[in-house]
Design a protein around this nucleic acid. Structure first.
Lengths: 128, 128
DNA sequence: CAGTATCCAGGATGATACTG
DNA sequence: CAGTATCATCCTGGATACTG
């Protein structure tokens, strides 16, 4: 290949349109993946999710569920009983997204110790 | 399975120790994945990266490279010439991480239009 | 060339109180 | 039960100027 064929490859991010960021930035926020994984085994309700996902606030659960619903990963069903019942469930696209996500989770678990080790080395070099 | 076996499954995030967040939160920030992908084809230098990764500031390139180096995904080599030359390269762990990342990128590209469509529907329902 | 140092704006997240 | 509304705080990222 030509001398600088590689270095000439430019990379754009385009926050609005980039398909990568559309998915990864959403998954990168604090609660998205936890909620998706909480729904893998089936439908669940708001307060049940809230107690299962340890540490999440009502505000962030609502907001992240809305985001995930807007992206098309989660569906929301309201049963007009009294008191009202709301069920959340993965859509088919949501269930599909979980597959590559699990690949990443598996990778993360496999390399967790390596990463911690690298950080330790790096920090020791910086401080020592 | 028992009645509430599913709903009893609790999910923790533990920002410090959770292997998932250790990886995904880092990849979720604005420039990490772009830098990793920019280095897939081989070694590159600071200013070359800066011009190839469109829109990145000097500050964020430095900072994100340091983060990636600390995690063990990128190596940094200084050549004590004048002026100094610094080369960045993926480590073997970095090259390995790119694989599941590509799975996710492929998924994102495949579903980009679906996601945009879902958003449109959602927003129309909210506003109309 | 390859950074560092400052300052600042905006978004993400959390705490708390209130509601159909 | 399943939220909404408001306020405070922290973190991310961008602009700009300076340096070995």
């Amino acid at each position: 290949m030509k001398n600088n064929e590689k270095s000439s490859k430019r990379i754009f991010h385009n926050t609005e349109e980039c398909p990568i960021r559309n998915v990864v930035a959403q998954m990168g926020n604090k609660w998205s993946m936890l909620i998706l994984f909480a729904l893998v085994d089936g439908t669940d309700r708001f307060n049940s999710l809230k107690s299962r996902i340890v540490g999440i606030s009502q505000r962030m659960l609502t907001q992240t569920l809305r985001d995930l619903e807007r992206e098309g990963y989660v569906s929301r069903t309201v049963y007009p009983e009294v008191p009202v019942k709301v069920e959340y469930e993965l859509t088919s696209m949501g269930r599909d997204l979980v597959k590559p996500l699990y690949q990443l989770v598996t990778w993360a678990e496999t390399h967790h110790e390596d990463i911690k080790h690298c950080r330790k080395i790096y920090d020791e070099k910086a401080n020592g």
